[in-house]
């Protein structure tokens, strides 16, 4: 099985891989470090790596000034809400495509994916006006619906690929056992597809969390998630790097932590179910 690898070669690869890994990770690492510096030290040259006066003051200031918690709460609600909403309508669809396919199923799936090809700018103006006229601008319900629709094709696609791996006979067995469609989905398919659903859920939470076109265009304050919170730092006050870093760290930390703990699902999800 495993090939014998010379120790020397392994060491060289280790050094190389770690260097490149650190290089790629550096901007994030640097942001996290800067968030614990004073503003003075943040712009000091040559930069200090570990030996500076560590402080958490920036975090307190950022929270106080721009109410991080409100934005974070919105991010959580939007990401979770839109993903769960999409799952509820995607699971039956993916079930139908995987287990009761018709002649058109492949085309339908391709059409669904093609809606992702539609540039958002093509829909920006009308959606903005519709939102304005129906009082949906800056409401959570409105933006959740948009994010749901945005990620629905990807969710259906991913679930479809996962469902295809499940033997149809098991679902048929449940049908023989008298399960209705609802029960078949709830008690048999969904539990069996948990790993796939978890990956789908995770990836789409990330996509929704980081979505920065519609959230910037359609929210301002009440429903604004962390993308807006950060965008507000692009103004000159963003020049306070330590605070900018603290704000950035707070905006990305939840997803980084989530990704860390759910690495396996994440890796599986990131490949969109398209690569085994």
């Amino acid at each position: 099985m495993a090939r014998a690898v010379s120790k020397r070669r392994k060491l060289i690869v280790t050094v190389l891989a770690w260097s490149i890994g650190l290089l790629i990770f550096f901007p994030i690492l640097w942001t996290i470090l800067t968030s614990f510096k004073s503003e003075g030290e943040a712009i000091e040259l040559p930069p200090k790596f570990l030996f500076f006066a560590w402080t958490t003051e920036n975090y307190a200031v950022v929270q106080e000034r721009s109410n991080y918690l409100l934005f974070a709460m919105n991010s959580i609600l939007l990401a979770l809400g839109s993903t769960l909403f999409a799952l509820v309508i995607a699971i039956p669809s993916a079930w139908a495509m995987a287990f009761a396919p018709g002649k058109r199923t492949k085309d339908l799936l391709m059409w669904m994916l093609s809606t992702k090809m539609m540039p958002p700018v093509g829909a920006l103006i009308p959606l903005y006006l519709i939102f304005r006229d129906f009082g949906l601008l800056d409401t959570r319900g409105g933006i959740i619906t948009v994010l749901m629709l945005l990620n629905l094709p990807i969710i259906i696609w991913m679930l479809y690929t996962y469902f295809k791996e499940i033997p149809g006979e098991i679902l048929e067995a449940s049908r023989m056992d008298g399960a209705s469609l609802g029960k078949e989905l709830l008690y048999v398919l969904t539990p069996m597809a948990i790993p796939g659903i978890a990956s789908t859920l995770l990836l789409n939470i990330i996509l929704a969390w980081n979505e920065a076109f519609w959230t910037l265009a359609l929210t301002t304050k009440d429903a604004a998630p962390l993308t807006q919170f950060i965008a507000s730092y692009s103004s000159p006050e963003g020049l306070f790097w330590a605070k900018l870093s603290a704000a950035s760290t707070m905006a990305i930390a939840p997803i980084l932590v989530l990704g860390w703990f759910a690495q396996k699902q994440l890796v599986r999800g990131l490949t969109f179910g398209a690569v085994k």
């Binding site: 006979e169 449940s174 023989m176 056992d177 008298g178």
Partner: peptide, 25 residues
């Protein structure tokens, strides 16, 4: 009742769960 070639057992349920599923339904 049907017994499938691949058995088609519910992998996430215990033996008890498998046997009782139809009755529960």
């Amino acid at each position: 009742s049907m017994v499938f070639q691949s058995y088609a057992l519910y992998p996430h349920m215990s033996v008890r769960g498998n046997i009782s599923f139809g009755l529960k339904m």
